[in-house]
Structures are given as structure tokens and as C-alpha cells.
């Protein structure tokens, strides 16, 4: 675990906590009043987040004298012996997020095969035949399962008028 990133995350969380406190103190009180009110708990929890993040950050700074930037992990570690890439994980997430943004205009059937192909390519499945076969078969299987069997109304975009369900 890189303690610089650990510290950056703690600082970011502390600022988020501060934002919660500031926003909480501006909340409308409403007409129905109670001893606690709508502001108290959010402000307290925001304060708790700031306090916790500051303690985490101070603890990191205390051990900063350590020569290495990498310290014992407090989170889930990668499997030993295989290179790990944050870029790969973030690329997968970004591809999924773009998919969500485009899902309504383009629809499930048009958008899912390229998404699967991109994701599998990112995950080092590079042979064209499995890539195309897995993408196409998965979309058919999901369509049959969700649309035909479970009657879920998946967004179909421009194909909607031409589909039976």
C-alpha cells in the first residue's frame, strides 16, 4: 500500500466530511420540529468523518519517516505473483460508466456486444473468435433470460419498434 495515496485519500475524505458539515448546517429546519432536527445528525456524522480522517492522516504522517513509500497493506491485497494494473481496473469501470450513459439512446442490444468486446479485450482476451462469440452469445442469453423469461423492459433504443417484447 502506497502511503502517499493512503494520505491523499484520508485528506479527500476529511474535506468530504467538512462539506457534509457545511451543507448540513444550511439544511431547512421544516415546520415539524423535534429535539434533534434535520441538521444535527448529518453535522455530527460529518464531524466524525473529519475527525476519523484526520486521525488516519496523522497516523500516516507519524510513520512517514519510513524509507519506503510502500507499507503493509490495510486493505485487500492482490494475489501474489501476478502483475496488477490500476489502469486496467479503472478502464473496466470507465467502459461500464460510458455504457450506462449511452444505454438509453442506443439500447441494450446495440450497445452490449461492443461493451463486452471492449471489456474482454481490456482483460486480455484478444483472440477474435472467442471475443465475438462470447459477446454475441451473452447478449442473446441475457435477452432471453431478462426480456423473454423475466419480462424486464430493457432499454432497446432505436430497435424498440422492431422487437416483439
Amino acid at each position: 500500500m502506497d502511503q502517499r495515496k493512503d494520505l491523499a485519500l484520508a485528506v479527500a475524505i476529511a474535506f468530504s466530511g467538512m462539506a457534509v458539515v457545511v451543507l448540513a448546517l444550511q439544511l431547512p429546519l421544516g415546520r415539524v420540529r423535534d429535539p434533534v432536527g434535520p441538521r444535527t445528525l448529518p453535522a455530527l456524522i460529518g464531524g466524525l468523518i473529519v475527525l476519523g480522517a484526520v486521525v488516519v492522516a496523522l497516523r500516516i504522517l507519524r510513520r512517514w519517516r519510513s524509507v519506503e513509500n510502500t507499507v503493509e497493506a490495510e486493505g485487500t491485497e492482490d494475489t501474489e505473483g501476478f502483475p496488477a494494473s490500476t489502469l486496467r481496473a479503472m478502464s473496466v469501470w470507465a467502459a461500464l460508466f460510458v455504457y450506462v450513459l449511452l444505454l438509453r439512446p442506443l439500447g441494450f442490444l446495440i450497445l452490449t456486444p461492443p461493451l463486452l468486446a471492449v471489456l474482454l479485450w481490456i482483460m486480455a482476451v484478444r483472440r477474435p473468435v472467442p471475443l465475438v462469440a462470447i459477446s454475441a452469445l451473452t447478449v442473446v442469453a441475457l435477452y432471453l433470460l431478462f426480456v423473454t423469461l423475466l419480462h424486464v423492459r430493457l432499454p432497446m433504443g432505436p430497435l424498440q419498434p422492431y422487437l416483439p417484447f
Binding site: 429546519l29 434533534v36 432536527g37 488516519v56
Partner: peptide, 29 residues
């Protein structure tokens, strides 16, 4: 790390503040 656990629980609570206040029924966050 218990301090990180506290922060995590706090962040989770903040998520639940989004929406309607349970008593005053005003909108929050």
C-alpha cells in the same frame, strides 16, 4: 484500522441522509 472503520460507517450514514428527513419531511442533500 478502527479509525478507517469509523470513517467508513460515517460515510455510509451520510448516504442515508440523502432524501426526505424522517421527521421534518424536508429534503436533504
Amino acid at each position: 484500522n478502527v479509525f478507517k472503520g469509523l470513517v467508513a460507517a460515517g460515510l455510509g450514514l451520510v448516504v442515508t441522509f440523502v432524501g426526505r428527513d424522517p421527521v421534518a419531511l424536508t429534503g436533504r442533500f
